[in-house]
Design a protein around this nucleic acid. Structure first.
Lengths: 266, 266
DNA sequence: CGCCGACACTTTACGGCATAAGGAGATGTC
DNA sequence: GACATCTCCTTATGCCGTAAAGTGTCGGCG
């Protein structure tokens, strides 16, 4: 279920990631029929399939079909499904390397980063399902991280603490965006909107747990504080996720601000 | 890949979740052979399989085999793999309902909650892969959330902001623990420790990106600040995840503290 | 007692998945 | 023209969830 990237030959995958076509460049004319596809085309097709049908829909057959080939044809360009996913992962991260709020206050720049990351994950919902424990180590993944560090640099927080904060920010954005993306995906795949889903379950819950309000008083209090108008536009869960990101970011920024000390500098 | 729970008949699944055996209780002696298993046994077997082999290893065949049955035998007790997962999900959350730091300062109680949640996710690594967008609505899931709210209650933060903070905390703990859990799982499944993995890739990265240090100065700075001794004990990624949780929690607590205003009360 | 229907559980089958193995045809070099 | 090499294909294997149909066991009713 969780996809572990980078299992094949590291040398090969790394060369493809950094598009190191070999020290002697490409010999270019070799015997055999000319390739009808390119690696970039295969990766792009993979991204298109995953964007629409999720990681579950990313099959070699589906990618091949999009390119007018069979599944096995892809193995000419890519050694593995895992390698394809590595390349897809790094490719989409190119969308996150540009510093859009260059020179702005770090709080502003961080907010811009979070907003862009949110959009990014909604565009490519499968990204948040790829495990982070075996980083792909591609150029774009590195560049995207470098950008976040450039934003946090002016806070003067130490390297040690910065690593923790980067992790916390990443988990927050990933988690919130994943929830929103899955909410949309679930509605599409199951053909049941969130409202429908809730209307079907709410009375059943009430029937099966008639003492809900006394048993879970704080949950009841929490629900009572909702502004239903917000939900209609984007759906309950997506709204919750958006709020979690906004509130989490706010609280983290406040926490960084208050905990900055001279000893943290550099 | 992402598992959407609760797709079957809501009435049936909810009744099983809340163990509402029907208003007329159990008729108990009916024609036909006596059931050799119980629902609880099936759910427990599912949890055992998933704990060891992950969601990817959770197959009806595997669960059946653990119980000395075929895959199809399970359909007597459970209508679906999704329903089984719902029941497993709520069942394990029973481990998180007890208030262990009752009456303590909310900062202490929150730290205890985070530590327990961390352990919980390492015990049941598959939980963080179940989508949160279609909550199971079982008794234990509700009770676990109620407990977190009880901890946050003394901060006096409004319901609206509390929802955001709860989401942020959940995403942080889920993300960090998932990373640690996947790190262990990857080492086990691929038979390659994190150190081995890194030693295989580090020189390749250096060869393919000789200008790494000038291209990614801040990443280089970040890596330089690492205390290698920490990693030996638990592995690099698990340590990173632990730090992210600790630092994120610290910063969120500081942020809550500083942003508490009289207007937030109640 | 004998039979019927309900029920637990099994075997078999289907379409989907990644990918190993081997074959067909195209294209370059000699 | 022969041959090596390359792209792309077909086929096969062993997984998955679960539909369909069969087997044997039991309680209740005649």
């Amino acid at each position: 279920m969780v996809i572990f990237a980078s299992q094949g030959d590291p040398r090969r995958t790394m060369a493809l990631l950094w598009r190191d076509t070999g020290s002697a460049a490409a010999p270019d004319r070799r015997p055999g029929p000319r390739p009808g596809l390119t690696l970039d085309a295969v990766v792009a097709a993979g991204i298109e399939v995953a964007d629409v049908d999720g990681l579950a829909g990313l099959s070699m057959r589906a990618v091949g079909e999009r390119l007018g080939r069979t599944a096995m044809a892809l193995y000419t360009y890519v050694s593995d499904k895992a390698e394809l996913l590595d390349l897809m992962y790094d490719q989409v991260h190119a969308e996150l390397v540009a510093d859009t709020a260059d020179g702005a206050d770090w709080r502003t720049a961080l907010a811009a980063w979070a907003a862009e990351s949110w959009d990014f994950h909604l565009r490519h919902p499968w990204v948040s399902q790829v495990s982070m424990t075996r980083p792909v180590l591609g150029p774009n993944e590195n560049a995207a991280m470098e950008r976040l560090l450039r934003i946090l640099r002016p806070t003067g927080v130490s390297a040690r603490r910065t690593r923790g904060i980067v992790g916390a920010l990443t988990h927050l954005v990933r988690g919130a965006a994943a929830m929103a993306a899955e909410s949309r995906q679930a509605a599409r795949e199951t053909g049941q909107s969130e409202a429908d889903w809730w209307y079907a379950r709410s009375p059943v819950l009430a029937a099966v747990a008639p003492d809900y309000e006394t048993r879970f008083p704080l949950l009841t209090w929490l629900e009572a504080g909702r502004d239903a108008a917000d939900d209609d536009a984007v759906g309950y869960m997506e709204n919750e996720a958006r709020q979690a990101l906004a509130e989490g970011l706010k609280v983290i920024v406040a926490g960084i601000d208050v905990s900055r000390t001279p000893s943290d500098t550099i």
